[in-house]
Design a protein around this nucleic acid. Structure first.
Lengths: 236, 236
DNA sequence: TAGTGGTCTAGACCACTGG
DNA sequence: CAGTGGTCTAGACCACTAA
């Protein structure tokens, strides 16, 4: 059960994404929305504030709220979005190939990444993401086995995130990301269709639960020509 | 004159960045802050919400607000931060070399990027960013001359953003960013210390004013080994 | 149970925009 | 001037956590 302002947020967002509210057009004023939705001004403002934060509208004092035309086609790799969620918005066919999947004692590297004690266990999985018939992305995931007791090939082929959130009830809070460009390794060239590129875009991702527990480390290795990061930023 | 919640935000932020509030420690409860700052609960909550959005704290229902230890050393290239603001947080000496600076009629490429009419004029500037003695970044800026009537070499060496915001009173609203990896051009190799790298990280940046006017297009071209993008993301 | 943050309401005043 | 969004207040109730 969503709160009122979340529901209103989704309602307006749907209108924007459906094109019912055209880019550049003016939203109803707060006063109008109060009677339209039958809620208090604060509730409306929370919904509008969310839309603004996520780059869908721009609010201008004395004028009103206006629909932005960005964030339409471009998929935002910024934010916390799973590959499955991205793939669903893409037109090209996507496929996930599970290359490795095992529960292992955490080695030194993994313990350091996930800040684990000795003798901790982790799930390790290596997956290749195929987009439009080409093997483009190599995903290496390490999950703290205390929070993820079981992991199957079917889950890895579908969506780990979805499994964590819906089946295990884990609440994902935030993530720290780091994007760098490195020399491609033999592993990159072995798993991906690399076509003479010698560099790889590495996206490191540290995922935390709502209670601030670090439970996942992911390394996404992209073929450089296929990598594109689209973001939206507001001036603080 | 900042609003109350912005002041309180900065006050708490200062305590976090100074280490007065250690990472992992618990902030005073909302009730305590109400009497501490003598404001209403809503005002406190606005400040805390800002801290949470920007990745400084994590709020947990029933428990309290806790200081996160990320966003400390790593400088966030995400968000809307000028090179000067970044440089001030870095230890290595930074230098900006202005290679080009002229007001020109917008060519077709520029008109398309900035959605300009024919016969519009733009300020074009090409700058090399030197960090730790190495020429690392090539910045190409195009600014709509209707909003930026004058631009000097001194301004470009210091900070264009600062000039726009303080001298011209332009209010920057948001930006759309795009990061890709491309083949390095002759221009890249001519201006930068490229050391046999054949690829370049290209950060395209479209900057809008608060009234949604697109007025600046920037292309930052980074040597791949020196590029690092650090971000913080929350789950929606 | 007491204390925490999350949601919602109602009302006030201010700053900015446009006619 | 009327209409817009921005800030601030005071109070209510709920959901969750910990002892």
């Amino acid at each position: 059960m969503d709160s009122k302002y979340i529901s209103i947020y989704h309602e307006i967002l749907a209108k924007i994404e459906d094109g019912e509210m055209a880019a550049g057009s003016k939203l109803p004023s707060e006063t109008e929305m109060i009677s339209e939705y039958g809620v208090s001004r604060d509730t409306i403002r929370k919904a509008l504030h969310l839309l603004e934060q996520n780059g869908y509208i721009q609010r201008i004092q004395g004028k009103g709220s206006f629909v932005l035309d960005i964030n339409k086609l471009s998929f935002p790799v910024s934010g916390l979005t799973s590959f499955k969620e991205l793939a669903q918005k893409m037109t090209e066919p996507c496929l996930t190939l599970v290359k490795e999947l095992e529960k292992i004692p955490a080695d030194e590297f993994t313990r350091e990444q996930l800040k684990l004690p000795e003798q901790a266990e982790v799930w390790k999985t290596v997956r290749v993401r195929q987009i439009g018939g080409k093997k483009i992305i190599l995903d290496k995931d390490f999950l703290d086995a205390r929070y993820v007791p079981e992991l199957t090939q079917a889950i890895c082929e579908d969506s780990i995130y979805e499994h964590l959130e819906t089946k295990l009830g884990l609440k994902i809070g935030f993530a720290q990301k780091e994007v760098t460009v490195q020399q491609a390794t033999q592993e990159d060239k072995k798993y991906l269709d690399f076509e003479n590129y010698n560099m790889v875009v590495v996206v490191k991702n540290y995922t935390y639960l709502e209670d601030m527990t670090l439970f996942q480390y992911t390394e996404s290795r992209h073929r450089p020509d296929k990598f594109k990061f689209v973001g939206f930023a507001r001036r603080s």
